[in-house]
């Protein structure tokens, strides 16, 4: 197969609903630093795609540039992938979805890739509501260029060699909420259980699902004084909810006991259940979400879970009133008007 090398060993011979094994969702071997948070996310993406029985041929993986943006090579080799240029994944993904609206997009970016060089494209992508999962693997630094601060670094956070960041961070979740994104979550790469559920829900969601996943850089930002290190995040993480995923094919499936949980329809027949933990936070309230994010920032708390969710809205191809078939394969009989049309225009101009 072009593009892929060997797959990591498959966990079992089990197959999912479309007859694929876990190893059919594998990618080539990761070349990231051992222990990098990004690899944990890659593993959970493989799990989620397998669990959901996503058809690899219907998925495209898009990324920018950075350690995080390399990770599409490490999962789902049977899916097309485009590792583009720094900060421009949103536009490239937009073009791909216009060419073929039937493709599900998994976009992987970094905090530098999205919050620094690519902030403009990120902002505009949020307005378009592509059918995509947009993941920022957020480590507060530029891993690939050796540890400079990114725009998500917290105020007062220390760099590996002592520099302190004095500027306010950009909260990508708050920005996404503000820009009308209908599925916004903050996750921690070390929280396997929450990631597995949230990733499935995000993949099932029709429209843009934005996931800001704190993903420590073990090489450049895992020291004392960093607010994006494994130990710091483990200490400060406060989960907002227990997240459950109820797939469309199995409406009886419940991971947790029914209680005072909230149900959210994801647009493809599946549902997400949210059981609040120790607060009465309502993630369907956009203003409340922004308030909660502002407060948690002041209290230096790291809240994980679903920040904001709403029923899915028309996606970009729907907004543009495009035909259902992919534009990429429309026949010439459709894309070239007849001779009468040219004659009509010529007559008008003569």
């Amino acid at each position: 197969m072009a593009g892929a090398t060997e797959a990591p060993e498959a966990p079992s011979n089990q197959v999912n609903r479309i007859g694929l094994q876990k190893k059919d969702y594998a990618g080539s071997k990761s070349t990231l630093c051992i222990g990098c948070g990004h690899d944990l996310i890659t593993a959970r993406l493989i799990d989620a795609a397998y669990d959901l029985s996503l058809k690899p041929e219907n998925v495209i993986k898009m990324s920018g540039i950075g350690c995080s943006s390399k990770t599409p090579a490490y999962f789902m080799s049977r899916s097309f992938s485009f590792n583009s240029v720094h900060g421009r994944m949103p536009s490239v993904a937009t073009g791909a979805s216009l060419a073929n609206r039937s493709l599900k997009i998994i976009g992987v970016s970094g905090d530098g890739d999205t919050a620094n060089i690519g902030i403009g494209q990120f902002v505009h992508l949020m307005r378009r509501n592509l059918d995509m999962v947009y993941i920022v693997e957020n480590n507060g630094v530029y891993g690939l260029t050796k540890g400079q601060f990114s725009a998500t670094a917290d105020k007062g956070s220390k760099q590996k060699y002592g520099n302190v960041n004095f500027m306010s961070p950009i909260d990508l979740c708050a920005l996404a909420v503000e820009l009308g994104c209908n599925f916004v979550a903050r996750l921690f790469a070390g929280n396997t259980k929450m990631m597995r559920q949230a990733l499935q829900a995000a993949m099932a969601f029709k429209g843009t699902a934005f996931l800001d996943i704190i993903s420590p850089c073990v090489t450049f930002n895992n020291h004392a004084g960093s607010t994006k290190s494994f130990p710091y995040v483990k200490d400060h993480e406060t989960a907002l909810q227990d997240i459950g995923f109820v797939p469309a094919y199995d409406p009886t499936y419940h991971e947790m006991a029914a209680g005072e949980e909230r149900e959210v329809k994801l647009g493809d027949g599946s549902k997400m259940t949210l059981k609040a933990l120790g607060n009465d936070y309502n993630p369907t309230d956009r203003v409340g979400a922004l308030k909660m994010l502002a407060e948690s920032r002041e209290q230096q708390k790291l809240l994980t879970g679903i920040i904001c969710v709403a029923e899915s809205q028309p996606t970009f191809p729907q907004m543009l009133n495009m035909v259902h078939e992919p534009l990429s394969t429309l026949p010439l009989s459709v894309t070239r008007p007849g001779k009468a049309v040219l004659d009509e225009v010529m007559d008008e101009l003569s």
């Binding site: 485009f82 536009s91 937009t94 073009g95 216009l98 060419a99 493709l103 191809p317 429309l330």
Partner: peptide, 24 residues
């Protein structure tokens, strides 16, 4: 049977082409 998009700038306009041309 088409899409016309006014992008946020020329980088995005051409980025969309990279994605669209790639996807056929």
């Amino acid at each position: 049977t088409f899409a016309v998009v006014q992008a946020e700038d020329e980088i995005s306009a051409v980025g969309m082409l990279a994605g669209a041309g790639w996807a056929g």
